[in-house]
Amino acid sequence: MLESKLIMYDIKNGFISNRIKILFFILVICVINIIGVNSIHRSEEMYGVSATIMDQMCFVLGGPPYIPKGMFELYTIPLLWLIQNAMIAYIIGYYATNDVAGYGVQILMRSGDRERWWLSKCVWNGVTVVVLHLWMYIITAVVAVTGHEKISFSLTTKIVTDVCNIGSMEGKMYEYAICIFLMPLIVSITISALQMTVALITSPIIAFLTVESVMLLSTMFSNRILFPNYGMLSHNMITCGSDINIWEGIAVCGIIYIVSIVMGLVYFSGMNIIIKERQI
């Protein structure tokens, strides 16, 4: 009962306090989608094929180009992909640490339990990431439909290899669906949990820079240690012959997620809560 009250408080307060950032995120996703629609239309005309909603999803969620080993000269910073992920990190960044330095202290003391309070923040974190991804799916679908793309869940090979950084199409349909819809969400939930824990132990800025560095490095190197690679269809073995695969990605993300939550729990259990000086 108390848990549900805490979670409801966090979800409501989290969305209210982040509403401007969320609106900005929606705007960014709209802009990315408009760029996507234009690129896809050019490709449609060039190859004489019709694009689908799934192609548009692939443009937004498919990930940055795969850079084969020893060919780093091909690398360009994938700004659109980095910005959309940076926005999620920006929304996640300050809530828990700000809450524990303000009103949240009163909530924490009334909850009578540090563990409950932390786990409620973890639920908020996961829910926020899911909601942000739902916004991405909805906006992408709406932009695709208004851009006269076919309502279909199949990928158009010529289009995705031309504009969505996909090397080849050697997987099964369900694998593409998992890579486009599920893996970016799983990676995002994992990195957000990691970010919240690092923010608690260090500071929100250090946490933000840490996750963004991991993201940036993942766009450069298709390495299993850089787990955001698991959230990129373009870096997956079904499109580029790398050793990044879905099932390993789910397991790795699961482990990192649990470790992050437990680390945060242990740290917060003994953390000194020092409230900022009052401005009177």
Binding site: L6, Y9, N13, I16, A101, Y103, Q106, I107, R110, R278
Partner: peptide, 23 residues
């Protein structure tokens, strides 16, 4: 607390009501 902090977008009563609802 040294730095009493409440939710900006709520009235005083609503702020206290949220706190009271936890316990």
């Amino acid at each position: 607390l040294e730095n009493p902090s409440f939710l900006d977008g709520y009235t005083g009563f609503d702020n206290l009501k949220i706190l009271a609802s936890i316990k």
